[in-house]
Amino acid sequence: MKFEDRLKEKIKNIIDDLKLVVGYTSNKLPLRVKPIFIENKDEIENIIFNNLCINNLATYAYSLSQEVDGKIGIILKPCDVKSIIQLLSEELISRERIKIIAVGCSGVIDYKKIQKEIKGSKIISATVEHENIEINTLNKRFNLKLMDFYADKCYWCDIYDNPPVYDEYIESDVKLSVKSKSKYEDINNIEKLSLEETFLFWEKEFNHCIRCYACRNICPLEVCKDRCITQLDEPYWQSQRITLKECKFFQLIRVFHLAGRCVECGECERACPMNIPLLKLMKKVNKEIERLFDYKPGLNIESKPPLLTFEKIEERIKEEELI
């Protein structure tokens, strides 16, 4: 049976025990998909799964667990399963509320990378073939190599057919076959800059931030978005102005709030309407956390994030050499 059909068959078998299943369905906009929430068997035919399914459906895990009684099934790529594991390790949701329906993945196309390649022009229509994508804008046609436009995280993924935790697993038809790349290549380029140059780099990026909070709201781990410290009136920690200074302040709070918790799913960067490279920030912070605490988020339900717990003696931090 074809992969998508096996997935639908599996859902058909388990949906009676579940209150809700969150999956992907097609979107009228080219190269995109959107989430679908189904409750009955006759809606299952709308579920799809293909190499456009870049969204992380774990975004809805926490809010659904608060709103809905009973078990919630979520269709998750192995990288997205990491978000659920992190939520579980922080005890934000309980294990028996979520049915992890993991699917084997062969990589997902990042439509924003394609938009970048065509310099921000609108993608009017697109045809995805085996090795090529044909993109039509208003005035031009582009023929691009599919392999070059997968999401960055696909190029160093090692769990695409091996999700760390799952309740159900549907194996993929196709193997992930992209040329592997170094995970921190883009960070290295910024690390080479001096402190002043780095600061200027991020100033230039955040000049365009409009403080829409899309990055915060789409993150599966930002469960506090309705009580966010950056929007409170009492106490009034932060101004509500939309300026470079305030946008940087908000972003710093967000980055440190996620330090050691972010599983680098990339949704924040995808959601940003102003194309700010937010994932770079998170990767750098996580790199430091890994160096200081030897901790990788999202892999093990039992291990606890280092910034939420403390040890009397930290093995890897010598007090004389903090940096």
């Binding site: 959107k34 989430p35 929430f37 975004t59 809805y60 409009i210 403080r211 829409c212 909070y213 899309a214 915060r216 709201n217 789409i218 978005k225 101004s239 509500q240 102005r241 959601a271 309407p273």
Partner: peptide, 22 residues
């Protein structure tokens, strides 16, 4: 159900005019 209640649609919309004063 999909909505994550951010401000992306509001801030790009040419007729959303709401503002807050502080």
């Amino acid at each position: 159900r999909n909505c994550i209640s951010c401000a992306a649609c509001t801030y790009v919309c040419p007729t959303c005019f709401c503002f807050s004063i502080g």
